[in-house]
Amino acid sequence: MPILSQAFEMAVQQDGWASLANMGNALYQVDPGFDPRTYGHKQLSKMISKLKDRFEMRAQENDGPIIFYVRMKE
């Protein structure tokens, strides 16, 4: 989906990873009506994790909540 690629490009950091939260915010900027439930997923994280051919996800725990990061596969 082009909208996911566009949101990723808006949220990506210099290390090639984007936090899932920042990507979600970018998705809302690109399309305020975006909802992963439209595509059969309850959460953006579950949607991205199903797109293994396009995205890679990792989790990082920092003395608090777990933060998810996304990277596009080449």
Rank of each mutant, 00 (worst) to 15 (best):
M1H: 13
M1F: 01
M1C: 06
P2V: 06
I3W: 05
I3Q: 12
S5P: 00
S5V: 04
S5K: 13
A7D: 03
A7S: 09
F8T: 02
F8V: 03
E9S: 14
M10Q: 06
A11T: 01
A11C: 07
V12L: 04
V12N: 03
V12M: 09
V12D: 06
Q13S: 15
Q14E: 13
Q14S: 15
Q14H: 10
Q14A: 15
D15L: 09
W17T: 02
W17K: 05
W17Q: 07
A18M: 08
A18D: 07
A18N: 05
A18R: 05
A18E: 05
A18K: 03
S19R: 06
S19Y: 00
L20P: 01
L20V: 08
N22C: 04
N22I: 01
N22L: 08
N22P: 08
M23W: 01
M23P: 09
M23D: 02
G24M: 03
G24Y: 04
G24V: 07
N25S: 06
A26S: 13
L27K: 04
Y28E: 14
Q29K: 15
V30A: 11
V30W: 03
V30Y: 03
D31A: 12
D31F: 02
P32N: 09
G33E: 14
G33Q: 14
D35F: 03
D35P: 00
P36E: 09
R37P: 02
R37G: 11
R37W: 08
T38E: 11
Y39K: 10
G40Q: 09
G40P: 03
G40Y: 06
H41D: 07
H41V: 00
K42L: 12
L44G: 04
L44Y: 10
S45E: 14
S45P: 05
S45F: 02
K46M: 12
K46Y: 06
K46W: 02
I48G: 05
I48C: 11
S49P: 00
L51C: 05
L51T: 01
L51V: 00
K52W: 03
D53K: 15
D53Q: 14
R54L: 14
R54Q: 12
R54F: 11
F55W: 04
F55L: 02
E56I: 04
M57A: 02
M57I: 10
R58F: 00
R58K: 15
A59H: 02
A59Q: 11
Q60E: 15
Q60D: 11
Q60R: 11
Q60P: 00
N62S: 13
D63M: 07
D63V: 05
G64M: 09
G64N: 11
P65H: 14
P65F: 14
I66M: 14
I66V: 15
F68Q: 10
F68E: 00
Y69R: 07
Y69F: 15
Y69D: 06
Y69T: 10
Y69M: 14
V70M: 10
V70C: 11
V70G: 04
V70Y: 05
R71I: 02
M72E: 15
M72F: 02
K73D: 01
E74W: 10
E74G: 15
